[in-house]
Design a binder for these strands. Structure first.
Length: 534
RNA sequence: GGGCCCGUAGCUCAGCGGCAGAGCAUCUGACUUUUAAUCAGAGGGUCGAUGGUUCGAUCCCAUCCGGGCUCACCA
């Protein structure tokens, strides 16, 4: 049996959630085939609302859907595609707080996002602008997807057939949705939202007539009875119907969504069945919470953004976070980054420790790297790097690597590129979290004398790299100047030179940092270059 | 009110049929001249409660109790 065959065999019984999901899709494809359809491909969809920018949830949804897609490909020879669908014909409901030209946007309320000028002035419309941001975001991670614009689909006629099917089932669809609405909305509800030929606004108005033969609807617009074809982009579907219509038109086999959309999924599923189609397989994932258990929302600015995560941890770590337990509410805040990075490292090692295909398929790193986890090793953990960087005052790559070699002599940036990247993240952590807490103080006269002598001795050492030799002299100078207890001498070194009450073993630091360089550092402190500085 | 998730060591969580685990925190020791780091070790749990299934339940099922989120306007 080839390794491919054994992978396929193992995939059929694998328990990792992407396989559980993929089996649902396999079963759906089999049902389609049994019904006489020729199943040439299977379609995965992720949705995007372009009234906002892509965020960590967008990343999670596309990443997770991709894992299901890859799992499916291990079980089935059927081709797959991932559609990233932008609901850009949706009306602009309110002016977002974080864009230029808000007063201009205010004049376009209610218009389709693709009919609103781009407040940034870089694209044909606000919708197009945000679509571009979405694509750049997805491309940044190398996702394989096919972008689809709702506006394009409507206007090009791609949705026409499905729109006529909705019209054909107008009453049924309406009656499915009506009971779920409040009294007020019920009065004006229509599965179709016409776009006013006069104002360009997506209208939420009662539909007076629907003509199945003509393929049109009639409604009142600015006091005049108006008739429009449901096809060709003149009319948009109300969103839950829109979702169902889209599933039908595109033939979507799988789509996941957040748990806030559970009732929408149920409704869209019913509508799809009413339209005579089989709804896709779905999964509800949990929303993310901040460290206090509150839902993350961009307006509140709580939790972590993708950019924030990627400032302190690599792509693999955020991917791992998304992989783990999609159905459990997870707290997403700074402290989870180091833990997730180290979990990733541990899983990578576990992966390499086994040849067993079945075992490997259960490992998140298999999915994160689409079946090809890297071969590299991480001789020290990220947690250790973070502690090291703050305890050792290692503020550049070479110095930090020097300390790393004290723990893992064989480690180096060339053979451990992943670790070298972690070094970069650790240094950024130092800059952002350690450095701001530093409080340098001026040395006392007694300390000045001792420091001056230490600088002179270090100059004599020159290129000395023996940490113990240096440490011995540091100790001798402390004794000679009558520090009692001696720890006060070391404490003074840290407070004056590093702005911290604690630090690395001083001899080790000087040996790595360079004795001459350390002497320079001391002289700068003696010249009061640091004191008082934060 | 409907739905969903979670109650496991002081904290954050993993485990999800076969002798209760990790990280952090705590304590002890080592690195024979500071501290931090590092290393070795220790303590610490009726696995929310009650029933059921099973030779066996933290795990599966039912009920209950707690905590939280979400939908009930729009997408």
């Amino acid at each position: 049996m080839s390794s491919d065959d054994s992978l396929r065999a193992a995939a059929r019984t694998a328990r990792a959630w992407p396989f559980e999901e993929a089996r649902k899709v396999v079963a759906r494809a089999e049902r389609r085939a049994a019904a006489g359809e020729s199943v040439g491909e299977v379609l995965f969809e992720t949705g995007y609302g372009p009234s906002g920018l892509p965020h960590i949830g967008t990343f999670g949804e596309v990443a997770r859907t991709t894992w299901v897609r890859r799992a499916f490909e291990l079980m089935s020879p059927v081709r797959t595609r991932l559609i990233s669908f932008s609901d850009d014909m949706d009306g602009l409901r309110k002016v977002p707080g974080n864009v230029p030209n808000p007063e201009m946007l205010g004049e376009y309320l209610g218009r389709p996002l693709t009919a609103v000028p781009d407040p940034f002035g870089t694209h044909a419309s606000y919708g197009a602008h945000n679509n571009a941001r979405l694509r750049a975001f997805l491309d940044r991670f190398g996702f394989d997807y096919e972008f689809l614009s709702s506006t394009d689909c409507y206007k090009s006629g791609r949705f026409d057939t499905a729109l006529l099917v909705v019209l054909e089932h107008y009453e049924t669809v309406r009656d499915i949705v009506l009971p779920t609405l409040g009294a007020e909305r019920r009065a004006t509800y229509s599965p179709f939202l016409p776009i006013s030929p006069r104002s360009g606004v997506v209208l939420q108005v009662p539909i007076l007539e629907w003509n199945k033969k003509a393929g049109t609807i009639v409604f009142e617009d600015e006091g005049r009875k108006t008739e429009l074809p449901v096809t060709g982009g003149h009319v948009k579907c109300q969103w839950k119907v829109d979702w169902a219509m889209r599933w039908l038109a595109l033939g979507i086999d799988y789509e996941m969504s957040g748990k806030d959309l559970i009732s929408s999924v149920e409704l869209s599923t019913k509508i799809t069945r009413a339209l005579g189609a089989a709804p896709p397989e779905t999964l509800n994932y949990e929303l993310f919470l901040d460290e206090h258990g509150q839902r993350i929302s961009k307006s509140k600015g709580n939790g972590l953004s993708v950019d924030e995560w990627l400032t302190y941890g690599p792509d693999e770590s955020i991917a791992l976070f998304m992989f783990q337990k999609p159905r459990a509410a997870k707290k997403l805040y700074f402290d989870v980054i180091p833990k997730t990075v180290d979990d990733y490292i541990a899983l990578l090692e576990q992966y390499r420790a086994t040849d067993d295909a079945a075992e490997r398929l259960e490992n998140p790193v298999f999915h994160i790297h689409h079946g090809h986890p890297p071969a590299e090793t991480y001789p020290v953990s990220f947690a250790l790097l973070l502690t090291l960087v703050s305890a050792s005052n290692a503020h550049d790559r070479d110095l930090l690597w020097g300390f790393i070699r004290a723990y893992a002599p064989q480690a180096n940036p060339k053979d451990n590129p992943g670790l070298d990247r972690l070094v970069g993240y650790a240094l950024r952590y130092y800059e952002d979290f350690v450095k701001p807490t530093k409080r340098y103080r001026a040395p006392t006269d007694k300390e000045r004398a001792a420091l001056g002598e230490l600088a002179a001795v270090l100059d004599q050492f020159g290129d000395e790299r023996d940490a113990e030799k240096v440490q011995f002299e540091v100790y001798e100078i402390g004794k000679r100047h009558g520090f009692e207890p001696l720890r006060d001498w070391f404490k003074a070194l840290y407070e004056v030179l590093f702005g911290q009450a604690q630090g690395p073993r001083f001899g080790s630091f000087a040996a790595l940092f360079g004795c001459r360089e350390t002497a320079v550092l001391i002289r700068r402190a003696l010249a009061d270059e640091f004191a008082g500085r934060a």
